[in-house]
Write a protein that binds this DNA or RNA. Structure first.
Length: 522
DNA sequence: TCTGGGGTCCTAGGACCC
DNA sequence: TCTGGGGTCCTAGGACCC
């Protein structure tokens, strides 16, 4: 339970503000007003349980403040306290992140860099250095995972944490103390500041991490969600962008409260079935989305915007090959292949077209992707010039079917294709899995073309970074391993080059049957 | 001011099958 | 001869998020 009896009986505000590191700036915003008593232990469905006690979810949303520019300011002290802008620095660039010093001049994300330079000519304009950001992100997320392994990273600088199982007796005070410890730990270890919203759902946590920025914490007591949301603009709801807001405003709906007052039918008529239903629930403070620790990729793509529009098909073909090479590298690095090849172009007038084609078999082969992408490009009129071209692959599966092997396979080794989802669902192979045997694509590993190690499915292995696991599938030049931990979440599937020196056989095989071994121990 | 790059999800129409 | 409905897959576009 979330409630603190004293507080719930005295109707005091449960809000909590940032710790002492908050820089000078806008005055602290707090959860103002009197909160009603929380509902004592009202069950919220059966999905979250710890032992026999059901508790209201305790969800955090952690968001690093002005992340890219903060990393740059840490790495280069001369930038501290000054306006810094990270983004595309070319003629058609846009701002990824503006430091708070730059925001004071009206610079913000997604603004064309040209406009930002006009508003703040003396700022430092930097191209993004994703490697540095990834390093910092990993350090922060590791600290957060020490609080709970139920962490869903939604972007390089954002994550949801579910504290429910680990803290079934959470109170506003205990959540506040825990989060302030985490924020202090992040700052001490990395120099970065994180803002956090805490509440009974992702929605409430997310909205309030935004309101807590920069370097703040807002804890929303259970039971106060709807009334807190009601006066907010509909734009505060994640999923309401410019188009949806305009549509709502045209019908006199500008606040969350007005949206909540609509009939469900009206909301659906206005916004469509899925969107209308979800936003209507959100407006009532209802959000049952779970924190999901692992998610299978659905597509891989790469695109580029030209400095000036391009009409020359030879040039376009060269870009298609380069973009495909980037996509292919990432597919192979993750052991993925896809069935649908997508070509995307943006024309001189900023209109965007996509053309796609679906193959009989998934592929991760550059030549195959290029062939189809070029065919799609050939069907488009480019005479007025393109400003962007992109290549993508979707319909992903975890395993490649190498064309090379077509002739080698005999009927008993006929490949069985499985989707990434089959392997990434959290209970795969677990006690509740109706079919714990891995549905692995079998490929002939008896006669690889080189002297590299040959792995057979079921073999036990160890990997320096990921811990212990067993071989789940093998392909030409690569091996796919399911891990048991530690170091990697239970059930995690990873693919490696089969001569990866960090991949070591454990000998003799002594691995227990996997359905005895995988448990959901959260 | 003139709009990046990487994604996710939804909708809608048409083909096709039963 | 005229005409079903449901389900699935594919394609294209659009909104949205960071």
């Amino acid at each position: 339970m979330w409630c603190n009896r004293e507080q719930s009986e005295t109707h005091t505000s449960w809000s909590t503000r940032a710790g002492p590191r908050r820089p000078p700036g806008p005055s602290p915003r707090s959860c103002s007003g009197r909160a009603p008593a929380c509902h004592p232990a009202r069950p919220v469905g059966s999905r979250r349980q710890t032992g026999s006690v059901r508790s209201r979810p305790v969800i955090l949303h952690l968001d690093l403040d002005a992340f890219f520019t903060a990393v740059e300011q840490l790495h280069k002290p001369s930038l501290r306290g000054k306006p810094v802008v990270v983004g595309g620095v070319g003629g058609r660039g846009v701002v990824s992140t503006a430091s708070y010093e730059a925001r004071a001049f009206g610079v913000h994300s997604a603004m064309p860099t040209a406009e930002a330079r006009r508003r703040c000519p003396h700022a430092a304009y930097l191209s993004p250095r994703f490697e540095a950001y990834r390093d910092a992100s990993v350090r922060v997320m590791d600290l957060a995972r020490a609080v709970t392994p139920l962490l869903e990273q939604v972007s390089i600088d954002e994550a949801y944490l579910d504290l429910t199982p680990a803290h079934p007796d959470a109170t506003v005070e205990s959540v506040t103390a825990l989060v302030e410890d985490l924020r202090a730990g992040i700052h001490a270890a990395t120099g970065l500041t994180a803002s956090v919203g805490a509440g009974t759902s992702k929605l409430v946590a997310k909205i309030h991490s935004d309101l807590a920025k920069p370097d703040g914490l807002l804890v929303v007591p259970p039971g106060t969600e709807a009334e807190r949301l009601a006066p907010m603009s509909v734009r505060a709801i994640p999923g309401v962008g410019p188009a949806t807001a305009a549509r709502l405003t045209a019908h006199g709906v500008g606040t969350v409260g007005r949206l909540a007052a609509l009939d469900l039918g009206e909301a659906v008529a206005l916004l469509g079935k899925a969107h209308g239903t979800q936003l209507h629930a959100f407006a009532h403070g209802v959000d049952d989305r779970e924190v999901v620790t692992e998610r299978a990729a659905k597509s891989v793509s790469a695109e580029t915007t030209f400095p000036t529009d391009v009409t020359d098909r030879v040039t376009l073909g060269r870009h298609v090959r380069e973009l495909t090479a980037r996509v292919g590298r990432r597919l192979r690095a993750d052991g993925l292949s896809g069935r649908t090849v997508v070509l995307k172009v943006r024309r001189h007038d900023f209109s965007t077209l996509t053309r796609s084609t679906t193959l009989d078999q998934p592929t991760d082969d550059d030549a195959a992707v290029v062939r189809h992408a070029e065919r799609l490009l050939a069907g488009l009129d480019v005479s007025n010039g393109l400003r962007l071209i992109g290549v993508g692959v979707s319909g992903l599966s975890l395993y490649t079917q190498p064309d090379l092997l077509d002739g080698l396979l005999d009927e008993t080794l006929a490949p069985v294709r499985t989707t990434a989802e089959d392997f990434d669902r959290p209970d795969a192979g677990g006690a509740d899995d109706p079919d714990p045997s891995p549905d692995v694509e079998l490929v002939d590993t008896s006669g690889p073309p080189t002297g590299r190690p040959t792995w057979r499915p079921g073999q036990d292995v160890q990997h320096a970074e990921h811990g212990r696991g067993w071989v789940q599938g093998s392909g030409v030049g690569r091996v796919t391993v399911r891990f048991e931990g530690p170091g990697t979440p239970v059930g995690r599937v990873r693919t490696f080059a089969d001569d990866d020196p960090d991949l070591v056989a454990t000998d003799p095989p002594r691995w227990p049957a996997q359905d005895d071994h995988i448990t959901d121990d959260y």
